[in-house]
Design a protein around this nucleic acid. Sequence first.
DNA 1: GCCAACGTTGGC
DNA 2: GCCAACGTTGGC
Length: 154
Amino acid sequence: MKSEPDAFSWQDLWDAPKRTTFWDGVRNYQARNLLRDDIQEGDGVLYYHSRTKVPGVVGIAQVVQAGSPDPTQFDPKEPYFDPKARREEPTWYGVHIQAQGPLDEVVSLEQLKAEPKLAQMAVVQRGQRLSVQPVTAAEWKQVLKMGQYAGAGR
DNA sequence: GCCAACGTTGGC
DNA sequence: GCCAACGTTGGC
């Protein structure tokens, strides 16, 4: 999952109540499908900082509740308000995620691109802009290894 | 249903 | 701040 640290950083998630937040505001259909249909409770999350000096994976989170309707689509005061969204059949979804722990070493986009094992990873593909992207089990392991991830709760 | 115009994303 | 990439919009 990509976030711009100016908007909501890894530290913001870490400092949040129960280190948990609802990942809302996604307004892209491909990403919506992932949030609504594919992402399951218990899935691991690579937390990625974009539009920063060194973009890359900074921490590990976990999905603690699978997809549910994103309330901001119904609220005219919200920047993510969608006048076409209907409550009977919500257009946009989000998931609840909880921070597990920071990587010992940030794994930069540059490193991701340089690692042959990650050549197929979504985030290194040209023109890839989705804010939520799939990660395979092998990619997950490799990124944690590169980040010297030492486990949760620190 | 085509496609130009426009808006957004995000690395650089 | 630039601009390539790509999604969306809307006229026709």
